[in-house]
Design a protein around this nucleic acid. Structure first.
Lengths: 206, 206, 206, 206
DNA sequence: GATGAATGAGGCTTCATTCAT
DNA sequence: CATGAATGAAGCCTCATTCAT
């Protein structure tokens, strides 16, 4: 079956599209050094170009950041949403949160440098940037709040805390792993397993 | 009786020493914007001086950072150590960890902008800086590891995880609160109470 | 009879030649913003192409400028020469200068963006460019000088000034109108009429 | 008589104030090359500094331009106003305009590189800059309009033209001299004398 | 102790220009 | 003929740092 590939498609696979190449290089640098400490020249070098060439694809360093943040959030949101969806309709609230936690953690730790940027550096970004992205982040938070609300209402989770702080604590506990966990040295699956157990049941021996 | 006050001692008086003034101003800015994004001029302005004047007190921006990190770690370490000591010798492992968590959280959230810098921005600092501070941070980690080891060995805590990841998870869960908790709008005591409960027993209804 | 049209000739057709299109777009931009402030990309956009495509037609931005200047001078020179020629051989010196002034002003104000570039921006161009064009401009000046010389010699014009400064003053008075006169809001004919009267007789009531 | 000079004053004389030094250097370069073609480094070099040092005194290239334009207009306006004032109250309209023209021309040609910038490059400046300065320029124009109105009303000047175009033509004729007159080679006084005569009485022999 | 002024390296960005397609 | 993509020099500007006063 003869396949006539168009230009865009033909580049996928071997040669990454330059725009994506730049974004990915930038994401890694932002994640490791922060946004302000990362130089256009560093990004360019990582993408095998000259600094000036980046401006053919983006209009500013800020635009790169915006896009990195967007992609990062989209990836983790998609992964979590899909994981929850795959639980099936008869799944209990706890089961769904378990799935969501796994997806969140996996995306954060091994699937997307974009996501780690969003998680790690967001808090130190200039206010105008944060402002632009707050709505999207809030939407992600609300999705989790729904999951938690169901777990609390069905009696699966403790009810002595409001849903929002509960969610913030749990996501925070997961997020912080990005500061120390090295997916190249340990098993992500194992980490997921343990973190979820700790979050569900705590550190106390039962 | 003539009293010859040394520099340190004079600090007890009204006016803060300029050196401390600078450090504190720098800490707040580093915490909010990150190190790279913070300007010597911003620090100077916050300390009511000109940028050049800072060099009478410090030899470089890096030196300020080093000192801020040191103070931040010292404060939280001291607070935690003291809290544990105050438990008395007959206290159980869990009680001591509870006290430690409270002290850690309180210092982080309401007592020291220096500590929040250390927690928030460390991961994005240039490697040479991190290298300089790694030993001190490790010592703090080892202190916690001891606490956890005792809790595990006495059977208070679950034993299916190694001590180090356990400690990292717990501290991480606490640390992340600095990203969202606003001590001016909610009670730190309440947060401490809830976080410790969540860590001990998890989110599940018991 | 097969006709082999050369490039120049083909211009007579409907669509403007790209070369001319570029020149005209460049002229307008140079006239309004100056040469240095005008971007190859602006020129390209105004000519409905990409910046790179311009290099098929010209070898450099400087070449475009050179040609714009040439065309501008040629147009005004041609117009003035023709206007003088059309006066007929029995016309007096003043009559011929009147015709020349009208042609100069009309070309400048409503017939050629190329000419306005030459008039407006020449003085701020880099010396090498000016040097290249000085001879041509001088020739135009000399043509006027001849006109003035005749007027002075025949007693039509005052003789207490040398011809060259006289010509420079008169042309200057005409040239400056390009800085404020808007041919879309007022009548060029009227302006010509008034300017020539002012130049001939001055502002005093007679 | 003991003179207590303050710092500002003591610098006047020998060492020009750096701010003024920069402005004056910039004015000359803007006047000769235009604003866009003039480099911060050129300005700095002409002021014996590094490019970065300029930013201690000004916040941007645009701010330098604004100030140059302001000074240029202030100088010519002051000179003209004073020249008119010095005519005395019993002076006729024509006499006052004569004085004004002399002051305008003299300032433009030999007293202020700032003024020539305002006259020469204004028309090619970006619209936002022009917009900022339009009100000030208009005020200068209105001052002249008053002079002309009086001359027309007292019957000294011809009345077949509206005042505004009349003024624009006259000032234009004067302004253009800056494009060709070299005050180092010819006498400004002589030029003033001749220009004013031409403007008053025209080129025709009387 | 402090500051005003300057420096120079380097940051982001623009732009004329090139070239394979 | 035209373009998409890239280049590298240079532009404006920032910033840590220095130093005479």
């Amino acid at each position: 079956m003869a396949v006539q590939q168009n230009r865009k498609a033909s580049k996928v696979g071997k040669a990454e599209l330059p725009r994506d190449h730049i974004l990915s290089a930038a994401a890694k640098l932002f994640r490791d050094q922060g946004f302000a400490a990362t130089t256009l020249r560093q990004i360019a070098a990582a993408a095998n170009m000259q600094a000036g060439s980046i401006y053919y694809h983006f209009t500013s360093k800020d635009e790169i950041l915006d896009e990195v943040l967007d992609v990062g959030l989209a990836r983790i949101f998609d992964a979590v949403r899909q994981a929850v969806a795959e639980c099936g309709s008869e799944a209990g609230a706890e089961e769904r949160i378990l799935a969501a936690m796994g997806a969140h953690l996996r995306t954060l730790l091994s699937r997307s440098e974009f996501t780690s940027v969003n998680i790690r550096v967001y808090g130190q970004l200039p206010e105008p940037v944060r402002e632009r992205h707050r709505p999207k982040r809030r939407r992600y938070g609300l999705f989790w709040d729904d999951l938690f609300r169901q777990a609390v209402q069905t009696g699966a989770f403790r009810s002595d805390m409001k849903v929002k702080p509960l969610r913030q604590f749990v996501l925070g506990a997961l997020n912080w792993t990005v500061e120390w966990f090295d997916p190249e040295r340990h098993s992500v699956n194992e980490l997921v397993e343990r973190c979820t157990q700790l979050i569900l049941s705590g550190v106390r021996r039962q």
